[in-house]
Design a protein around this nucleic acid. Structure first.
Lengths: 209, 209, 209, 209
DNA sequence: CATGAATGAGCTTTCATTCAT
DNA sequence: TATGAATGAAAGCTCATTCAT
């Protein structure tokens, strides 16, 4: 909740501040980011910071929710296209959308990734009401899918949703790590291949049948 | 490389220091742990710390390698039993051993888990020679297993090893998270069930056949 | 390069800080001066120091250049008067000007004198571009003077410039040392006598002719 | 005054300690030398230091007097040879002997040179009874020489002795500075030339006659 | 005597936050 | 509102000196 003052700021200045914050939060974990660092990058006076935000956490919250919103756009877009896809197709599209976001906005993704590694208390404090976790979302999809007979009845759905959640995050981390050194991953073709090979395993398992 | 002085310390005092360090490193990421915090917990004077360790990193390295060693005992024990197990059985046992360690030593496990979330540069600095990552280890097992015809030839082995690595870590994190609030997980029976349901999915996939 | 903040400080406070620094640097060699000592003398809080200077060296540099400038005023004044003086007259005036400065600003002179005794690396770091040493300056004068036939052709000019440089500094040190206990030296008459008797030797030698 | 314990030490160990001290004191001014540094170089335990010396100053004093003694050997040797030399010859030989010592024992000379740059209080404390300064020594020679009619009666003898003292020290510093980069100075021929050209000036002056 | 562990004082530096203009 | 100066708490590290064995 930045002050109205901040929201009224001329676009250019507001962006300068946000960009500075993004740069810092993409580089360091929350506790290692200093107000000093941000105001220096943003080239704003010390006092101004406190006029705009009550706190570093205040700024972080705002940033985080902005990022979440932006990512949601990608995810919604991915799901709207074809509401008749089966479970696997849906999830795959979500994965790809997530990676696409990572490709388009690596810094924001980095922040989100760092966020997932923060302490749970901190995360709860930032997110506020835990508005339906990703895991719950997958679980609902799985239940629906099971009713349609797409899912092996021996599968523990909670575990499955845990796996899909985890692998999604890991894939993004993997992508961020590789993207720095190597840019082979930067073409979308390759991205799809990776998701495909992951899904082959998650849907069929690794065991020879 | 703590000083000989530290190693010569009376058991009780040495443990007090190590326990203090464990407590702090289990609670905070490396950068958020302060020497001040540790010496206060351990009730040793400021100067003594520097007589024992050159640095916070010095202490951390020592701690980390101690933990790694201790965990290795669990893993080796798990593998020695039955060298004739197939791939799935082997991995399953490793997972269980990892969880067993987490159950016996939740704080140490927490430190190890936090370690995995540190920046790569830092990790490299601590580990020194990157002595064959977990992922490489799984890959070798998978290749051997494939040659024995246990693995679906359509499976991308690199991806599979990535998944097995990731899930192992995630499972441990999951366990640590749950273990704090809820202690239903604390009996071994339950542990095995969790691993089983995960392996069902990783071996057979979630799709109905 | 002190911060603008420092330069904007109210005269009184700025002087208090500078005076404190002068007092300390006149008393101790650079390495033995502590920020702690200065802020206590100046009665400013710890944090303020760092708002004004990045470093002790930063303050020292500023101080040193201020002193150099102030001394230059004396030296220039001494030389402007009579550009037609011969070599001996010129140098003599420089010596006297130097001593005059020492008389007017004994603390600043003390700092300059201490500076000359620091390690060469340090000196270079402070001065920056070694803008033509005193020795070079004397050498040029000597060469010009030789051409005018004022100098004994048997004299090694480099050695002569070395001697004039050295004696200048030593004279100032001598003056500083004596000035503390004894204030007979404090009248200008005496000062001139000293310089005269030194010059008699440097120009004519000690040997009976 | 090191303890008898120190003096009884096996030669090898005593030398190790003294060499370590020499190395440190040749590198840093007294205040910047740490006991820590010396015991590390000497590889002796912390406690031992205090068994041998009450203090860093204690060690320094001992070292300093050792050096002074050693240098005296050179100076006495220089003077004994030819008691019939005139003033100029005598002084010249002393200068050369000093430089010879600097050539043979650069580290010890460095320490002596650093000593001259210490605060006067400190110097007095180390030397103890100011047992006849170099300047007094030159003064006596000059007086004797004047009686023999070798000295220009217009010369202020105090000033002359000051000059001879100062130039001697400066010459040694100059030699030490040059000796590090350039070893042209290291042959004795050159050394003599330098002293000669200095003496030409000090005896005859720079003025054309 | 030799040893080396214990200790705390003292220094530098960073930073979040408050406040006055 | 914008600004940036003031401030002191807190951390890391070094070292001389004392002491117990």
């Amino acid at each position: 909740m930045p002050s109205q003052t901040f929201l009224n700021l001329p676009e250019e200045k507001r962006q300068r501040i946000l960009n500075a914050a993004v740069e810092e939060f993409a580089k360091y974990s929350f506790n290692d980011v200093s107000i000093a660092g941000i105001i220096e990058l943003a080239e704003i006076p010390r006092g101004s910071f406190y006029q705009y935000f009550s706190d570093l956490k205040d700024l972080y919250k705002y940033l985080f929710h902005t990022i979440a919103e932006r990512k949601m756009v990608y995810l919604h877009r991915a799901m709207q296209n074809n509401p008749m896809d089966d479970f696997f197709e849906t999830i795959k599209k979500l994965y790809v959308a997530g990676l696409q976001f990572a490709m388009d906005e690596p810094l924001l993704t980095k922040i989100a990734s760092k966020f997932m590694k923060e302490k749970e208390d901190f995360r709860k404090e930032i997110v506020g009401s835990l508005e339906g976790s990703a895991s719950d979302f997958y679980l609902k999809l799985l239940i629906a899918s099971k009713e349609k007979g797409e899912i092996d009845p021996n599968v523990d759905l909670e575990m499955a949703s845990f796996i899909f959640t985890t692998m999604n995050l890991s894939l993004i981390d993997y992508f961020l790590a590789k993207t720095q050194s190597n840019d082979l991953l930067k073409d979308k073709e390759n991205l799809l291949n990776i998701v495909e090979s992951m899904f082959y395993i998650l849907t069929n398992g690794v065991k020879k049948k």
